[in-house]
């Protein structure tokens, strides 16, 4: 049983999140402003915090600054502010994830699961020794077993999808156009195959990302190509 602290000044939202989390077998603690959040954090063992930004007394920004002074537990920011600047600010202050309101409950739960898994189980588990393992953050491709795991969860990919993902992860950080990907993966000249590749990549994204529209690992650079983020 992991303890999740949910902090939002809107009591109904906190309650809804609690319902979802309890279904997933989490123990939920509730706070309705920043000060209360810090108080509960001091008195209990918390494994993850879901933190709203706009709150009375102490807002989410101040609260996360306080938290980060002492603790490295995962924090998911939850806010109605959907501008890029807000997201960047939150993540730079030490948030592990940023979810905008109104959110898809399933997505929030998935992100909570991912964060918890990373915080509690992963980290030392990655065996970097073998040459045939390619990683980016929590995305791990074991080329010997032809196995792909994200946040410790195995993902089933078709051979084509696997080859594309392996190629991009091997060269993580670099952007490849559809044509380049085709030529590298099939070692053949690309002709009219562009769309197929793009569809494959969308499928991969849907399988490995929590929210395919805001991908974490396999990013789309519109009009330029695709890349696997260097994490």
């Amino acid at each position: 049983m992991y303890n999740v602290l949910v902090c939002d000044d809107d009591r109904e939202i906190v309650k809804a999140i609690e319902i979802y989390l309890v279904k997933e077998n989490y123990n939920v603690l509730k706070a309705y402003d920043g000060e209360e959040c810090l108080k509960i954090l001091k008195e209990n063992t918390i494994h993850l915090i879901i933190l709203d930004i706009m709150m009375p007394k102490k807002d989410g920004i101040e609260t996360i600054e306080e938290i980060r002074k002492e603790k490295s537990i995962p924090v998911i920011m939850l806010s109605a502010k959907s501008e890029d600047e807000d997201k960047i600010k939150g993540l730079n202050l030490g948030a592990d994830d940023y979810v905008t309101k109104p959110f898809n409950p399933l997505e929030l739960i998935a992100r909570v699961n991912s964060c918890i898994r990373r915080y509690t189980k992963l980290g030392s588990a990655i065996n970097e020794g073998s040459k045939n393992i390619y990683t980016s953050g929590e995305l791990i491709i074991d080329d010997d077993l032809k196995k792909v795991t994200v946040d410790g969860k195995e993902v089933k990919l078709t051979p084509t999808e696997y080859n594309i993902l392996k190629f991009l992860t091997k060269n993580k950080g670099k952007v490849y156009s559809i044509e380049q990907i085709y030529e590298n993966v099939w070692e053949d000249e690309a002709y009219g195959a562009e769309n197929i590749i793009a569809v494959h990549i969308r499928h991969i994204r849907e399988k490995i990302e929590i929210n395919p529209k805001e991908p974490k690992y396999l990013k789309v650079i519109w009009g330029i190509g695709y890349k696997v983020e260097k994490l």
């Binding site: 559809i178 969308r202 519109w222």
Partner: peptide, 18 residues
């Protein structure tokens, strides 16, 4: 602003709407 390939962009978007 950056250099963007129109064909690439349309292919990518088509894939999204497939």
């Amino acid at each position: 602003l950056e250099k963007i390939g129109i064909t690439e962009l349309i292919n990518q978007t088509t894939a999204e709407f497939e």
